[in-house]
Design a protein around this nucleic acid. Structure first.
Lengths: 188, 188
DNA sequence: TCTTATATACACCAGACTGTGTACGTAACG
DNA sequence: CGTTACGTACACAGTCTGGTGTATATAAGA
């Protein structure tokens, strides 16, 4: 078995299997309803091994959230085939695969702003708002910070509402976004 | 002890104390993190009594949500001293007392659309949207249903974002609401 | 080869959880 | 008064939880 560019992955990759199972189970069942026994069974990893990689479940949850960025909004902001305005709207084209932004879920389930994972949740939310702001600036918005923050709020609103009502709310959010963007751009 | 208009309240009102403690603890700590032992201690009720009033914790949670309506947005929609437009905006004047809409919290924590309480959560969300729609119609919006749904989404977005970021997002939502309302009203 | 890190199987712990069984008060109401 | 419904105290069952101890296998790297 070849070793990767980093010194890691010498064993059989138990750590990655654990994180993979975490993504699936934490999203499908929630964090609190997923026990370590079930998680280890799903990952085909002994419980002892899991606790050799992660000192506690809380730390595993934190790492699960830290690893999440690549999956959400994968290339929306990097699509050069779209105008900045189209890129802002593309952020609302979510194929209903996401049951609920896992960061909102985690913040509710953990219920403790001091939890190591809660910090990652805030960081991620801030990062998304920053990218929206950046794109808004490219689009020529008069107040990019405001527009970015507003669009971020729309995304979270659609996520939450989709979860509670069990029906897709992103189209509604996209409609609002279109209005806001048109209002924020001086003239086209 | 006089008996009320209904045949109820013959005893010493354990049921009301239980529901009162539920409101406080479920909101402050979350549902899953609040055990029945703690809840009964807070309500100064024996655990046996609690289970004589509610067949299970799940049913207690359902009743807790069912009883919630009066507390949220108490008289916003009934304030005759405000114009319909002002009433729509007043819905975003939330004094940061609400940590997170308990219905969103419950939907995330329970994590089961079949749960008896999840139905109440959907009902409540629908009711709020309906009242917003109604007020939007009074205000003369061209598409009241759309505006009502949009404003409801803003409230949920502000709730969720306030929770995750630990900072008040309702002003942002109010700003969006003002834009949407102005856009939806033909002319003033 | 031998050493060392990684993973495994499996039993086990202490605590929290929801929910119940039992026997006992006590206030209301006829 | 006595009856009846409500409430109490307390122990306990059964289960799940996160987390650990121990002894053993296996593959990588020297």
């Amino acid at each position: 078995m070849e070793k990767g560019p980093l010194g890691r992955r010498r064993g059989r990759g138990a750590r990655e299997r654990i994180l993979g199972a975490s993504q699936q189970l934490f999203r499908d069942q929630g964090i609190n309803r997923t026990g370590m026994d079930q998680l280890c069974a799903e990952a085909q990893v002994s419980k002892r091994t899991a606790y050799q990689h992660f000192p506690s479940k809380d730390e595993l949850v934190a790492e699960y959230l830290r690893r999440f960025d690549p999956d959400v909004m994968p290339g929306v902001f990097d699509r050069t085939d779209l105008t900045p305005r189209e890129r802002l709207l593309a952020a609302f084209d979510i194929p209903a695969s996401t049951p609920l932004c896992p960061y909102i879920s985690a913040a509710v389930e953990l219920h403790d702003p001091q939890h190591p994972a809660s910090q990652y949740a805030r960081d991620y939310k801030t990062a998304i708002a920053a990218r929206l702001t950046e794109t808004a600036r490219e689009a020529g918005a008069t107040n990019p910070e405001q527009l970015g923050e507003q669009l971020a709020l729309l995304i979270d609103g659609a996520s939450a509402r989709t979860r509670v009502l069990d029906s897709d709310s992103f189209p509604t959010a996209a409609a609002i976004a279109a209005v806001l963007i048109d209002n924020a751009l001086p003239a086209t």
